[in-house]
């Protein structure tokens, strides 16, 4: 924790573990991240298990008739949310790599990710 402009800055980690369209978790999480960005905290996002599918390239929802929110992850940079971590093991079992992601991400092994999680002040799980 550090003081900045009089306010306390906490480390917030959003943990995303659900695929994008089967449930509403992914979209809700993204919305909370965008709203939360206004509070200028130390934010990072973790993508684990089916959560990695949220960032998969090539999503096309036209025929399904719902909003494709995958382009919005590319706007996170404008919101000063730049720390996106994707779990290596989750990518591997799904046959995906960093090249398949819609945004630049940092690949992290589960052990390293667990340590990172331990160093957070607040964890929001979706």
């Amino acid at each position: 924790m550090s003081e900045m402009e009089g306010g306390i800055v906490k480390k917030f980690l959003y943990v995303n573990r659900k695929a994008p369209y089967g449930t509403v978790y992914a979209q809700e999480s993204l919305e909370v991240v965008l709203i939360g960005a206004a509070f200028e905290q130390d934010v990072s996002l973790a993508f684990i298990d089916d959560g990695v599918y949220q960032l998969a390239k090539g999503q096309d929802t036209k025929a399904l008739g719902v909003k494709n929110f995958s382009p919005t992850y590319r706007a996170l940079e404008d919101y000063d949310v730049t720390k996106l971590f994707v779990e290596k093991e989750s990518l591997e079992v799904r046959g995906l790599s960093a090249d398949d992601m819609v945004v630049p991400v940092t690949i992290m092994g589960a052990q390293e990710m667990a340590e990172y999680m331990n160093g957070q002040d607040v964890i929001l799980s979706f």
Partner: peptide
């Protein structure tokens, strides 16, 4: 850190992932 799990381990991989992430010192 306290980890909570509210899904059946036979229907979801939530417990498996949680145990992978639970480090000594957590519960």
């Amino acid at each position: 850190m306290l980890h909570t799990v509210n899904k059946s381990p036979f229907d979801h991989n939530t417990l498996e992932t949680c145990l992978k992430y639970a480090k000594p010192g957590s519960a």
